[in-house]
Design a binder for these strands. Structure first.
Lengths: 396, 396
DNA sequence: CCCTCTTTGTCCTGAGAGTGGAAAAAGTAG
DNA sequence: CTACTTTTTCCACTCTCAGGACAAAGAGGG
């Protein structure tokens, strides 16, 4: 099916599109309250947007005491694809232009199988979503990958946990396959965008979004914009030294945060504890499943298992110490904790908070909320949709 | 004397003023090459600037093969005051609008004497500079203070080393006294601005500027703009934990970087080494001066004193470890080391480099220069002048 | 010295952006 | 039904700005 390829012609139109995306349907008058344009100018730009079919009329607006106004909304037929590629699973979701999730699937998968195999799976998941009638095609797609990305070109660079992807032209390739614009970014940055759009970070200009999954990364938002660093590796905090002369890490150093606390490290510690009979809960779970993951630790902790709680606390302390340093340096207005280990919940959060509030100066921590992300696995795909919509809703 | 109070009327004029500030005298045609305006529009804006007397005609430009063009330059009578208040001394300088230093004085002073006493001294130093005929008055002043500042209002907030300054309306007060616009910022941020304008960081968008003086701080530049954080305390890295269970720090924690390496810590360590007779060089200097500072350690190291070298190396290692973490997190394009201890020179730099290149991933360090600042004590005052000129050269 | 070519500065016109007032349209409240 | 609001539409007017035509001023060659 032919898709809308129109783009806003100027900054005003881009502004209006983003307002409609973030605020839903709005009357012309309501839009006028937000944009500082004369009524005439606003009417002209809205008419032009209507012509492009990016926005459509949508019934009457609520009365504000006078003449009823007609609502304007983003074309409800627009469809965005959000793809969040993790180390061990993929999330694919379809959203409308207002970034509401219409359909969402998750499947296990190993990134190390390489880009070709992974994209085959992503495309088949996208096809499955399309087959349910949610979409006839996509107007844009955002892709998150678990490693650094050269953002303008959408190409992974030297990603440690996905070696086969180095230099693979993800953006180019997927744009070909899907026949629509594509943007690629680090999964952590997309989580930050997601939480900014629809989660806990809606009103904060400068914040950090720490994602603890298979690895550990940190999305950095400065003045409402994701900061990616000089080579796209900003936020790569997994290899900051957390323990002097600590455990050896895959990167070649010792004591990296990721070696001491992450989904992978936690699973290994839990298995070791189970095998050494230090934890009956974990041992039982290892017995039945054959393997342990962060989920098992969370369950054991919920059941009151002391060893599991200790593992979480210790990991939280390590992470908290590193975050304390980042808070001193970056002075954010909010810290969001997300990723697979959020299942560990408040035990983890309490440990992190303790370390940060103790290890940073009051001026930086005085009014600093440290909270769990509120979108869970949806954060990545919403962020991905947000990424591409930011691209589509900017002047051509 | 009456000063120029004109401000650019629009963004184009602001742009032109900054080009003239950064590039010196230019012909209309050369300006046209840089600004993407039609010749007519450019001519109009230049004429308006000439009317305001912010810029003046300045002879003929070099021929480029055709009709000779007249040069335009910033009014050479404009004068900016740059003030850099350190923990133990003040720098005051006068610059022209192109931020060239015309006169510069440094005097010892203790910030803890409080804002009133310090400003008395600053004003008398400014008067002294004025008396030499360099300036008849000032068109703007930039002030750097050694602590966090609520930037929009120009008010120090909870500064650890200058307790009497908390909440003092520095901007307001000095603006009254000097009768010109004033902007206030953290001294470290100004050093970063200085190195960006006239030093090693001219071409880099994202960089860190680590200042090791009495304390330790870090200026953060993102996309060419100083990042100040939510409460103005961004870059406060002196109290990041560098040594687990290390020395007690004035902030109440243990192992802060600043407690282990800074001008103050170094002086204490050196004194201790001298008293314990571990270093004949330092002991001799303590004997003659009665007290030791970073300068003495530098001299002893230059003379080959092993203890002094060890002190520098160990401090550099600590600092380097912290910077390695920041590099992983921030992925800068450049790291500048400045402040009082730059006298320690390449011994220090080598230690820092070793730690950073070892402790961060190759993607972040691959093309990362770590260099000493090239402006020395002038960085602060140039940065201060730059700060106020950015303010003056922005649309009213 | 004359001629041609290039660069720079100035003038002018037309397209388009944008403003704000007037009036019409469509509602609410009493 | 009347008075008052709010919203939309229409229109005339101002301003900005680009780009072409042309003039001014220089370089360089013969």
């Amino acid at each position: 099916m032919r898709r809308m390829t129109a783009r806003p012609a100027n900054a005003h139109q881009a502004r209006l599109l983003r307002l409609l995306r973030d605020g839903g349907p709005n009357s012309r008058a309501q839009l006028g309250d937000q944009v500082d344009l004369s009524r005439s100018k606003l009417a002209v730009e809205v008419d032009r947007l209507l012509e492009t079919e990016l926005v459509v009329a949508d019934g009457l607006a609520a009365s504000r005491g006078g003449r009823r106004s007609h609502n304007i909304r983003l074309n409800p037929h627009l469809r965005l694809l959000g793809v969040d590629i993790g180390a061990t699973s993929v999330d694919v979701a379809v959203t409308n232009a207002e970034l509401e999730i219409l359909g969402h699937i998750n499947q296990p998968m190993d990134v190390r199988e390489g880009p070709v195999a992974v994209f085959e799976q992503v495309l088949s998941m996208a096809a499955k979503l399309r087959a349910t009638g949610l979409a006839e095609g996509f107007d844009g797609a955002g892709i998150g990958v678990p490693g650094p990305v050269r953002f303008p070109e959408g190409i992974p660079v030297a990603p440690p946990i996905m070696p086969g992807w180095d230099g693979f032209p993800v953006r180019e390739a997927l744009s070909q396959e899907l026949g629509c614009p594509v943007m690629v970014d680090n999964d952590v940055n997309l989580m930050a965008l997601g939480e900014q759009h629809a989660g806990v970070a809606r009103t904060v200009a400068d914040f950090l979004c720490v994602k603890i999954g298979t690895g550990i990364g940190c999305g950095i938002v400065v003045g409402g914009e994701v900061y990616r660093g000089t080579t796209g590796s900003a936020g790569d905090i997994g290899h900051i030294q957390a323990v002097p002369d600590g455990r050896p890490c895959a990167c070649g150093n010792r004591g990296c945060l990721e070696a001491h606390f992450s989904g992978a490290a936690l699973a290994r510690d839990a298995t070791e504890a189970a095998e050494q009979q230090r934890s009956p809960e974990l041992a039982a779970r290892l017995e039945t499943n054959g393997t342990l993951s962060a989920v098992d630790v969370a369950a054991a902790a919920a059941a009151g298992d002391a060893t599991a709680l200790d593992l979480i606390r210790e990991g939280g302390n390590r992470t908290g110490q590193v975050i304390a340093g980042l808070v001193s340096f970056f002075n954010p207005g909010l810290v969001v904790i997300g990723g697979g280990v959020t299942g560990l919940g408040h035990t983890l959060l309490a440990a992190i908070r303790t370390q940060v509030y103790r290890g940073s100066l009051p001026l930086a921590t005085g009014n600093l909320p440290i909270v769990l992300g509120e979108l869970g696995p949806a954060a990545g795909v919403i962020g991905a949709a947000r990424l591409i919509s930011d691209h589509l809703f900017s002047p051509a």
